[in-house]
Write a protein that binds this DNA or RNA. Structure first.
Length: 657
RNA sequence: GCCCAGAUAGCUCAGUCGGCAGAGCAUUUCACUCGUAAUGAAAAGGUCGAGGGUUCGAUUCCCUCUCUGGGCUCCA
């Protein structure tokens, strides 16, 4: 046969000479496509451009600048990194080097447990650029496993991967999916560097180049804490200089809104060394925002059918024995305090105490659903290396509620919870949500299968009824019940997992919780754990990053700053402050000992929503000059109309209250 | 917990190949009274994260600890 025909993604077909490659197809379609092509998808499998096509195949060309195309060039850049490291560090062992979001990494083991220094990155980059400039081809080869073992004889990690693959044990989590059964695929280039790889790769290194090595980090071999610690180099790679520059710019922007940096700059809170790791003190400005968040939360819970409770920070060990926390999570708890009358622990969760409230007397089905709410502060001994600003902290406050209901009530309860969650999150400026539904881990769960199925269905139905898009995470649930987690997207497109709704079949059992049903019989309630903010501290951190410290007017620590142009306007400025305070706003005044320009600048840097300037014309006509954050100056605005505007601006917080 | 890098004035950081510690901003005082993003001058401010070791002498070199950052692992 001298010609073959292949099917294109648009449904059309194309004839090509027999033996034509994916690259030939791209070239036949157009030179622009050929130039942008980096790989192909043939019959659902990613292939190199150089792979020959068969008659009847479905072929899609992967181009740079698409997610798939970037994936290919990032992975190819990772190979170049490995090549450079092997050449510069004799005796280095190379392991795996996948593409990841925005870039790639490669893990190495250096002889004698040596480590990379930050300035090694520059040397490695130089060598990588030489390799790329040399325009080395990526040539695929397929070897029997035995031969592959000989090729990688001095590379123990590669041998381990080959053995796993050839024994069929590869789980796909490796980038070690390099073949099936006895055949192992490798990629070589002109300098005889060879790496185990499934591919595909760009045709040659000339297609690479817009990359940057970012950082060195430690990482465990195969992700296991018990495995050897490897040296990981992270890099980023893009299809063009502009795309790379844009990415680096995005990183800078993200750094500018880092909540730890802004917490210092805006005097919100601090983590004094004397206090110990993962513990924060809230300064007045941060505390105002936090209090407003908590106040809002309380109002919403109050009107939402929740009953408020309070519980202590400490409890006798017996309680955590009953709840099972001491058996399962002791490592994560602060250590015991031995007292005359027993052993006490700081609480890592509020639920056991809420169960005690439930159990304090007999409950009737008429009381259900019973919704207990508390802003409950808990302490968890997070491992030292895992702490991260407010995002991972050792003492934090959950907007925690435990709902006790019958199985029949479950679905309605969850549906209305979703409503509640979204409504609250929207108030805080989040508008894009997705959910994850975590289902039973067959290896580790309590409760009978039937109730898991019914509860999982209830969660799924509630999600569908609400119309929220969700992913199912099979086997990701905690041992005690299925759950829904809500992710929100922030102002720069990052997602944060905030709210959670979890079924619990375990604690009602452990605490022997019951209610008397309409049939006069005793029944076990289902318990729901749910938090909207999750942790108030973490939610605050996310808000800081979402708004880049420029809180909306209803949350801003200072809503209005008044600046008298000169000392002669001081009295008038004070009268404006008095009016604003009387109207319930947070306003302050900075007198004229600094020049106006400087005071304006400081107001902007402090991200105050409104900076008012008052001078001669304002004093005589009862007006103010308004500088809205991020807007242009408005002169001669009457005080009444400004107050009206401010009222409208902060009204968002009363929605649903 | 593991790997790497750090910790110097309130903040951001420089510096000391081992010999009395520096800048900018912020603070205080004085002068300036100013209409939209940094007025000028002066002063004050440090156990150089903590403890130990080496040394005539340690902020500097070594060890341990604490805390922080980047990852890994973990996250009820």
């Amino acid at each position: 046969m001298s010609e073959i025909a292949v099917l294109l993604p648009d449904g059309s077909s194309r004839s090509l000479p027999a033996g034509a490659t994916a690259y030939d197809l791209a070239a036949a379609i157009g030179s622009r496509l050929a130039k942008a092509a980096v790989a192909a998808v043939v019959d659902g499998e990613e292939r190199d451009l150089s792979s020959p096509l068969r008659n009847g195949s479905r072929v899609a060309i992967v181009t740079e600048g698409t997610d798939e195309g970037r994936h290919v060039l990032r992975h190819s850049t990772a190979h170049v990194l490995a090549q450079a490291v092997i050449q510069l560090f004799p005796g280095a062992k190379y392991t795996i080097g996948p593409a990841i979001e925005d870039g790639f990494y490669y893990d190495f083991e250096l002889p004698g447990g040596a480590t990379f220094a930050e300035d090694d990155l520059a040397r490695i980059e130089v060598r990588m650029r030489e390799i790329i400039k040399a325009n080395q081809p990526f040539v695929r080869d397929e070897l029997p496993a035995g031969e592959a073992l000989r090729v990688f004889a001095d590379q123990p990690y590669k041998c381990e991967i080959i053995e796993r693959v050839s024994s069929g044990a590869a789980d796909g989590a490796d980038s070690g999916e390099v073949g099936s059964g006895e055949t192992i695929s490798v990629y070589r280039n002109s300098e005889s560097f060879v790496d185990l790889c499934r591919g595909p790769h760009v045709p040659s290194t000339a297609r690479l180049g817009h990359f940057k090595l970012m950082k060195v980090a430690g990482a465990y071999w195969r992700g296991s804490e018990k495995g050897p610690m490897l040296q990981r180099i992270y890099g980023t790679a893009w299809e063009s200089k502009d795309a790379l520059a844009e990415h680096l710019h995005r990183l800078e922007e993200a750094e500018k809104r880092d909540h730890r940096r802004l917490a210092t700059e805006l005097d919100l809170l601090s983590f004094p060394q004397e206090l110990g790791g993962g513990l924060a003190v809230w300064h007045p400005k941060g505390a105002i925002v936090r209090k407003l968040m908590e106040d809002y939360s309380r109002i919403r819970h109050q009107t939402g059918g929740y009953e408020f409770v309070f519980t202590p920070h400490l409890a006798n060990a017996n309680l955590f024995q009953t709840s099972g926390h001491l058996d399962f999570y002791k490592d994560g708890m602060y250590p015991a305090m031995e007292m005359d009358n027993g052993v006490y622990y700081p609480k890592p969760m509020n639920c056991p105490m809420h169960c005690l409230i439930y159990r304090s007397r007999q409950r009737s089905y008429r009381e259900l659903p019973l919704r207990l709410f508390e802003l409950g502060t808990v302490y968890r001994y997070e491992r030292a290396g895992t702490l991260h600003g407010l995002m991972r902290i050792r003492g934090f406050t959950q907007d925690d509620s435990h709902i006790y209901c019958t199985e029949d009530q479950l679905q309605d309860e969850i549906a209305s919870l979703l409503d509640f969650v979204m409504s609250v999150l929207r108030t805080f400026g989040f508008h894009e949500f997705t959910a994850n539904l975590s289902t039973k881990d067959p290896a580790k769960y309590v409760g009978d299968d039937a109730i898991w199925d019914r509860a999982t269905d209830a969660l799924r139905n509630a999600l569908e009824r609400y119309g929220l898009s969700y992913k199912v995470k099979e086997g990701d649930a905690a041992f005690y019940g299925p759950k829904i987690d809500i992710d929100v997207k922030d102002a720069i497109g990052r997602t944060w997992q905030l709210s959670t709704i979890q079924c619990d079949f375990n604690l009602p059992e452990r605490f022997g919780l019951e209610y008397v049903g309409a049939d006069s019989g005793r029944h076990r309630p289902i318990m729901l754990h749910r938090a909207l903010f999750g942790s108030v501290e973490r939610f605050f951190g996310v808000l800081v990053e979402h708004y880049a410290g420029a809180f909306p007017a209803w949350l801003a620590p200072v809503q209005v700053r008044v600046l008298p142009v000169a000392a002669s306007h001081q009295q008038y400025a004070e009268s404006i402050i008095a009016r604003l305070a009387a109207a319930g706003f947070r306003a302050d005044l900075v007198d004229s000992s600094d020049p106006l320009g400087k005071r304006i600048r400081n107001g902007k840097l402090e991200k105050i929503p409104y900076v008012l300037v008052v001078g001669d014309t304002d004093v005589s006509s009862g007006t103010v000059g308004v500088n809205p954050r991020g807007g242009d100056v408005e002169r001669d605005v009457s005080v009444d109309s400004f107050i009206e505007r401010l009222r409208a601006d902060v009204a968002v917080a009363s929605v649903g209250a």
